[in-house]
Design a protein around this nucleic acid. Sequence first.
DNA 1: CTAGGTGCAAACTCTTTGCAGCTGA
DNA 2: TCAGCTGCAAAGAGTTTGCACCTAG
Lengths: 141, 141
Amino acid sequence: MSRDVAEIEAELRAKGVQVTRQRLAILNVLRAATDHPRVDDILSRARQDDESISQATVYRTLGALEKVGAVLKNDFDGTGARYELADRAHHDHLIDLDTGEVIEFHSERIEELQAQIARELGYEIEWHRLELYARRSRQKP
Amino acid sequence: MSRDVAEIEAELRAKGVQVTRQRLAILNVLRAATDHPRVDDILSRARQDDESISQATVYRTLGALEKVGAVLKNDFDGTGARYELADRAHHDHLIDLDTGEVIEFHSERIEELQAQIARELGYEIEWHRLELYARRSRQKP
DNA sequence: CTAGGTGCAAACTCTTTGCAGCTGA
DNA sequence: TCAGCTGCAAAGAGTTTGCACCTAG
């Protein structure tokens, strides 16, 4: 998976989304990120590329990219949005309560159970959010 | 489950939490609620009981109650916190994207799978959040 | 009596928006 | 060219906090 930015760029154009210098800088930041950066992090990282980019543009760009499904928005700790590129397979998150580290995982079985539960309630899932807040297990001391 | 407010009150006292007139009003609001009210809703409902209660008190009370595990905080749509009494068995939420209605459900199988996944990653779950955003299934038309 | 709670209003954080100028296709 | 994007600064929405007074236990 994990497309490179040129590919993402082409897809955005195909969807009629303008790809500007600023948007490219933001996409590059997300492409390079191994964490799930917050808006301010994205802004400061993008500024290393493009000195003049503004906070408003970052918000507007992330909003636009989210709308076309190019990025995913999260808010693990309720202190503001965190973003990631939506270019890989679907996954959920486990958040290390001590370090804040975010680990991605996927369980087809859980996905199926969710769909089944929704179906039984008369619903079809549009999307879902599963976050596990956890601590490292104690190893034998 | 579903304890009445007098019981909750006693437990709070046992935990060293002062139970004031205002806190009681808020607990009664949550006890009576069938939805997952936002802070402003809780404030206005509580004011029917106690005219003078302030917004700051609602925020501080909900914070205090959450800290001792008496209430649960949610934020389904990212537009602010919603609260519910933590007096029933654990459950997750399905949010109707068209009506905003919140349906509670529980799956022991999903809980187990979550714990298993965490274990495999070397973690122990402290708590988790599972939200299904869904629409009513099409019936045969 | 007094540690802790309350009301009020100001302050804060995160996010959105109006506007005039800029720019990608 | 010109619809759409951008920077700036101001405005919003939700939440927190300092302070003087009040009150549960």
